[in-house]
């Protein structure tokens, strides 16, 4: 990911992102303290400290930068990364699903879950997955459960 390949958000676009997050998860977060940028056709959103522009980047062979926050989807939805979910999830009031210990482990192993969704979870939207206070990630809610979208690198494999 090169600097020229990304698009940095202006203040209005950051506000718009905050609005989308609030609309989906009921939590107003402040992203204005970060540089927010989007990369690729997939509309991946990243966060980075503002110090970034204090150095001359022209001679660096940059491989990547910042923290992957989530992917913007159609109809003003956002699929948060695990870290994005952790930033948003603490005070989220909508689209949050709390799992018990056994289901949490299944989720972390990459399984889809057959589960009755609580009222605050909207089918065909992304939901933050929790186990008590621990935010485990973000996946897709279906009518009858959760389609597991946890990246392979974050799954527990081989226990």
């Amino acid at each position: 990911m090169q600097v020229k390949e990304v698009r940095f958000y202006d203040r209005e676009e950051i506000k718009e992102l905050e609005r989308i997050v609030e609309k989906n998860y009921g939590n107003k977060i402040d992203l204005s303290k970060f540089l927010v940028f989007e990369s690729g056709k997939e509309r991946k959103v990243w966060l980075l400290t503002k110090k970034f522009f204090e150095i001359d980047l022209s001679k660096l062979k940059i491989n990547s930068f910042g923290l992957y926050f989530g992917k913007l989807k159609r109809n003003e939805k956002i699929h948060l990364s695990t870290e994005g979910a952790q930033l948003v999830g603490k005070n989220a009031t909508k689209n949050v699903l709390e799992l018990d210990e056994a289901s949490a482990l299944k989720f972390m192993q990459g399984s889809d879950l057959k589960i009755k969704l609580p009222k605050n979870c909207e089918a065909h939207n992304f939901v933050i997955i929790k186990r008590k206070d621990d935010i485990l990630g973000c996946s897709l809610a279906l009518e009858d459960g959760i389609k597991n979208l946890l990246p392979k690198s974050r799954r527990i494999i081989g226990i």
Partner: peptide
């Protein structure tokens, strides 16, 4: 959040 990764 505060890191730039370079391949050099």
């Amino acid at each position: 959040i505060n890191t730039v990764v370079t391949l050099m």
